[in-house]
Design a protein around this nucleic acid. Structure first.
Lengths: 150, 150
DNA sequence: AAAGATTGAGTTCTCAATCTTC
DNA sequence: GAAGATTGAGAACTCAATCTTT
């Protein structure tokens, strides 16, 4: 039987959690700007880099990024306009398309990655014990299980 | 001496953390829509409700919300257009303004709060032990300290 | 009809510039 | 000049509608 409101501890925890995320992503975005990328750009490029042939179907990107379909499509269009990715028709499936990393896209993430990884460590992991990291991973996994179904 | 890349554990933790936040806020936003509010609206209204006279200066709101100055200003204009808040001149400081909760704003958050609080518990706190909640609060506070300075 | 993907309109956010008062 | 706040233009996101192929 849970009360209608949050406890003090929960309230403080919830607000702190939201604040951390807001500041963290704001800061990471700011630092990535130096390399001409947004966090969203970076995430797209990382996924393309991680994969053979450096190409993915939009629905596959969507699955890992957890974006709305149209958000992804619009974002890819903008990245394409900037030369970071290209689109190719898919032979296997006439409806489908490939999103392909371009040389410029590869250069961009190669240039941005070291500083970004550094920032993630400096702003996040450097302040956590191994045990805390493990806890965050366990909690996140658990929450994701339930968020799947709403 | 930290390596240039994240460890496997860090990589998995980082991605899971980002995913949790994405899904969590997406879900909370969806559920708030039923009450005609966004999460952003809700956060503004909560802060106004928490305070004597139900009014705040924009710079004070900005400090707790961690938003860009102009984002706040634009958002307040939209909320004002929808009748959720109003703006009044500030007597003490000719440059300043008050953001004031309207009756409609009070009604809106009163109507939305129970379901929203419920959702936060159902999607977040119900899956955490007391110890884990405490860990999250401690970690968040620690990270915020450092994020202050960049 | 369902799956893969895009489009357009409207909303929200960011960045830089501006305006006023201190 | 600095602080408090707004504005406008462009970028990014959401929602619903659409198009094509399966």
């Amino acid at each position: 039987m849970s009360s209608r409101w949050l406890t003090d501890e929960q309230e403080r925890t919830w607000r702190a959690y939201l604040q951390v995320h807001a500041r963290l992503t704001a800061q990471l975005n700011r630092e990535l700007q130096a390399a001409g990328l947004s966090l969203a750009d970076y995430e797209v490029l990382v996924n393309l880099t991680d994969v053979p042939d450096e190409r993915l179907r939009p629905y596959a990107l969507q699955a890992t990024l957890e974006w709305e379909q149209s958000r992804l499509s619009h974002h890819l269009s903008r990245m394409q306009r900037r030369g970071l990715v290209s689109r190719e028709d898919c032979d296997d499936d006439g409806r489908g398309a490939w999103v392909v990393l371009t040389a410029a896209g590869r250069d961009a993430i190669t240039a941005a990655a070291p500083a970004h990884v550094d920032a993630v460590k400096r702003l996040f992991f450097d302040h956590l014990t191994a045990r805390q990291v493990s806890t965050i991973r366990i909690i996140s996994t658990r929450l994701l299980d339930h968020l799947d179904r709403g």
